[in-house]
């Protein structure tokens, strides 16, 4: 079977996004766009984490710290009167990338369990650092006002406009990461995950590649944070809580790691489930737990392979 071109997945996401938008409006459910924007943003954050977990084999348990970083970059700049999104959003990416470049050399010295622990430790440090920032709301959080401004016609305080902007940015970012996955750099990352010692014996200074992956993933997650700040109109240290990092990991693993599209599916699924179930019962995490166990047992490659359940005879790729 001939593989689909790189842009097919991005095009599918864009198509589904616009179709959803049209249906939501046609059925008088325009309020859905808010949830949809949130899902897209978390989806992008999960996809950026997949670059680390699924490609480079670095299981980060602190990835949400870059959501916090990007979110506060927007919140603080807005508070200080710098409202242009053309500046805010790139700054969110750069600051997140710089943070990763700073802590990367420390956390990348370790592997496996210690990498999990150290990324968690740094995200907790950032969490408590922002809890103490009283100028920017401390643990109460910070209102993002006004929203990022681009051009006059684009008003992000309108949920519809925001959804379209988020959809377009997410599609561009997805495409870029799809390219990365198939690039020479992407292959090096896969090699690092499977056998780092072998990579070194071939001549790769694996540390450099892993650090670059860490920085890229952080910058993309920072962009997601910047958009999340606009979606919720509010940033707080909770953005970078360890529970949030855990949710991102769940999205990646639930959807199917190492595939990019898997984590997006995972994000859609998890947040929809949360949205629907939390209206029925406050015990919804219990149901989620049961579901995770089932997926882990029956779909070890994640939800994206759900079709195997319906065609048991054929081979699973």
């Amino acid at each position: 079977m001939k593989a689909l071109p790189d842009w097919a997945f991005t095009a599918a996401v864009a198509f589904c996004g616009f179709a959803f938008f049209a249906i939501a409006h046609a059925t008088g459910n325009a309020i859905w766009t808010d949830v949809a924007s949130r899902i897209l943003v978390y989806g992008l954050a999960a996809v950026s984490l997949d670059i680390l977990v699924g490609y480079a084999g670095m299981v980060s348990f602190g990835h949400a710290m870059f959501l916090l970083c990007g979110g506060y970059a927007v919140g603080i700049l807005a508070r200080e009167g710098l409202v242009s999104g053309f500046i805010q959003w790139p700054v969110a990416m750069i600051v997140s990338g710089l943070l990763a470049a700073l802590i990367g050399p420390l956390v990348l010295r370790t592997g496996g369990v210690y990498f999990i622990l150290l990324t968690l430790a740094f995200s907790q440090m950032l969490f408590f650092l922002f809890t103490g920032f009283s100028r920017y709301g401390g643990d109460e959080g910070l209102q993002v006002y006004p929203r990022s401004e681009f051009i006059r016609a684009v008003d992000l305080s309108n949920p519809d406009t925001l959804f379209i902007v988020v959809l377009l940015v997410v599609c561009v970012a997805l495409y870029a990461m799809q390219r990365l996955a198939k690039s020479p750099f992407g292959l090096v990352l896969k090699g690092c995950r499977q056998n780092e010692k072998r990579m070194q014996a071939l001549g790769y200074q694996t540390f450099r590649y892993k650090l670059l992956a860490f920085v890229i993933a952080a910058a993309v997650c920072g962009l997601a944070g910047a958009m999340l700040a606009n979606v919720t109109g509010f940033v707080s240290p909770e953005y970078g809580s360890w529970q949030r990092s855990g949710e991102l990991l769940v999205m990646v693993i639930l959807g199917g790691m190492g595939t990019l599209r898997g984590p997006l599916i995972g994000a859609i699924f998890l947040l929809m489930l949360e949205h629907v179930l939390s209206e029925q019962t406050e015990h919804w995490p219990l149901l989620l737990g049961v579901l995770l166990v089932l997926v882990a047992i029956y779909l070890p490659n994640g939800l994206r392979t759900v079709s195997v359940l319906f065609r048991r005879q054929s081979n699973v790729s």
Binding site: D6, R179, L180, K182, S183, P184, F185, G186, Y209
Partner: peptide
């Protein structure tokens, strides 16, 4: 340095 390329697909080389 080519191994740091993140855009051009490997298959194109």
């Amino acid at each position: 340095r080519a191994t740091y390329r993140t855009w051009r697909p490997i298959a194109a080389d």
